[in-house]
Amino acid sequence: MGQNLIKPISNPFQNSSFLPPIKNTYSRTEPEETPAPRPSIFATLRKPPVAKANDFIPLFNDCITAASSRTQEYLLFKDPENKLCLPLQVFLMTYITQSVCLNMTDTFNCTAMTPEQRILLGPDWVWALLDKPSKNPRVQIAVQVLHLPEKEEAEEDSAPTEAFSETLQLAQMESSSRNMYEKLVDFCTSIGKDCYALFLFFGRKNDKGNIYGVLSNNFEAAIGKCNKIDRAFIENFFKGSRYLHTPPGMMQAVVTRKDHDPLTLMIKFS
């Protein structure tokens, strides 16, 4: 009897000829750039930030720093004849030049008075914080410069009589009943509480090389008490002052003051 021999079937996977060729279907490609997200419709509804009223303060401080530093060179200069009276012009022109370079004149401008205006009204110049877009002054600071007494006397003595024009002489006659301090206070009072009188001291008795100031929108209160407004009255504010503001601190106090509130500050500018 013959035996049926069953031959085992060989594993087809052992023979590579049974396998179809494997192709590498994955190729290395550079990643595609993700497109930038489109702005949300709500983003178009946002309004650009509006400049705040005190954005000009750092620029104002830069101008004051430049003007004060330049003026100190003249305050500390030893004049043999004691007749050099240029600091007022130096301070004002340095400030104006710097403010023009910083493009701040549309926000905070400076108007220098003519000799006639100075005699009639009192200020040497007026600073004004302007409203946009009307450019109307919102806050004004009328500045009167006070030199050391010996400097003021030298300036008055050095001015020849023929240098005064007829207009200047008429201005002096018109305002002869009041001193320069009272004229400045009257000028500010006529405008209102948003106009401040600033007496700027170019040197003081015990500190001839620095610049100080007394600012107030309430000097007229002294008139109501029958006090005479003169240099001694203004310098007396320093005696009771425990703190001297910086120029930016002064401006910050001015722009944040509530309407009709009195404000009086002592400032050191240099």
Rank of each mutant, 00 (worst) to 15 (best):
M93K: 08
Q169R: 14
I267K: 00
N109K: 05
R204V: 03
N82I: 01
N4E: 15
Q252D: 15
K258I: 04
S40D: 14
C226M: 11
N15F: 14
Q252T: 10
G192A: 03
R46C: 13
F56T: 00
M266A: 12
K83P: 03
D106R: 08
G209I: 00
K23N: 09
A171Q: 02
Y243H: 11
S68V: 01
R242G: 09
K208Q: 13
K52G: 05
G2Q: 11
M104R: 07
T34C: 09
P115L: 02
L121G: 02
M251D: 01
Q144K: 08
Q169H: 14
F237L: 06
E150P: 04
N109P: 06
E162G: 02
P87I: 00
K225W: 09
Y95V: 00
D261R: 11
T264K: 14
Q144I: 00
P247A: 07
E33K: 12
N236D: 13
N61E: 10
R70V: 03
T29I: 09
V214K: 01
C110I: 02
S216I: 01
K183L: 15
Y212A: 03
D207P: 02
R204M: 15
E235K: 05
L168F: 06
C110D: 01
C110W: 04
T105A: 13
K205E: 15
K268S: 05
G122P: 06
P20F: 08
K268A: 07
N136M: 07
I41Y: 13
M266K: 12
Q169V: 07
S40C: 14
G122E: 06
E150L: 08
S175L: 02
K151S: 05
N4W: 15
N236H: 13
R178I: 02
A159W: 14
N54A: 10
R138M: 12
P247K: 03
S190R: 08
C226Y: 13
E174C: 08
L215M: 14
N103K: 09
C188F: 07
L263N: 08
T189L: 12
N24S: 12
P49H: 11
K7C: 11
